[in-house]
Amino acid sequence: MTAPLPPDEAVRIAARALPLLDLTDLSEGCTAEAVATLCQRAERHAVAAVCVWPRFVPQAAQTLAGCGVRIATVVNFPEGGEDVAGTLAETRATLDDGADEIDLVLPYRALQRGDAEAARAMVASVREACGDKLLKVILETGMLPDAETVARASRLALEAGADFLKTSTGKTPVSATPEAAEAMLSVIRERGGARPVGLKVSGGLRRVEDAARYLALADRIMGPDWVRPNTFRIGASALLDDLTRAGEAGA
């Protein structure tokens, strides 16, 4: 386990990480009551977004209207299948319901078997459907064999129009890892260009030390001024409690 941060550093990291959170409930037993609580916490702590199942998008959009917290949802989730028509229908429905951001699972099995075009077609089609809404592409890096494959998936997603790369669904045995995040950030850096693209680290982050590790990684690769809500997100709910504890301890 990573050693605890000194109190002053924990306070600094908590203040930096809170505005980057996508406060998430994608549990199988999620209820309207749980989403109401999630939205209350999101507004109280001024996080970047909530991420909920498509069926809860209307509730979240109504609850958080006007407060600045964005509404994210997931499509083609968590399987990462290849049904473009079905995924497009799901995307359009959630956008009509008030979603601001779409987290799409890349058809990573297609990529692994050598059918990169099937994966590319999914991302490009959903990109078109999203219009000016934010598209995050989940690479499911824990299911990819090595950093080279993660980099290849990252390039494909960005070329097809992704605004963000996201590590994982949180539904597989291996979620975010620093190694995968480093490969993804390296591709973002090499891409350059005027259109900003970002990274979302998701799955397994629970402590302020976890946030510190990924923030330091982003600072090292992208520079100290790169991290902000439109370029870096942390997909977590368990982490919020540790961040707020750290902040309160320094108050």
Rank of each mutant, 00 (worst) to 15 (best):
M1H: 14
L5V: 14
P6K: 13
D8K: 00
E9W: 04
R12T: 13
A17E: 10
D22A: 14
D25S: 14
G29A: 15
A34T: 10
T37G: 14
L38N: 07
E43D: 15
R44Y: 07
W53L: 10
W53P: 01
R55D: 11
L64D: 08
A65W: 02
G66Q: 13
G66Y: 14
I71E: 07
I71S: 07
P78Y: 11
G80N: 09
G81T: 09
G81Y: 11
D83V: 02
V84H: 03
R92S: 08
E101A: 04
I102S: 03
I102W: 03
Y108C: 10
Y108V: 13
Q112S: 08
Q112N: 02
R113P: 14
A116T: 15
R120K: 15
M122I: 10
V123A: 06
V126P: 01
E128V: 15
E128G: 05
C130L: 12
D132E: 15
L139H: 01
A151D: 06
R152I: 06
A157G: 14
G161N: 10
S168Q: 04
A176M: 08
A180T: 09
A180V: 09
A181E: 05
E182S: 08
L185E: 03
V187C: 12
E190I: 04
G193V: 07
R195P: 11
G198R: 05
G198V: 13
V201A: 06
G203V: 02
G203P: 00
R206F: 00
V208G: 05
E209P: 13
A212R: 03
A218F: 01
M222H: 05
M222E: 04
G223E: 05
R228S: 15
A249W: 05
G250Y: 09
A251Q: 00
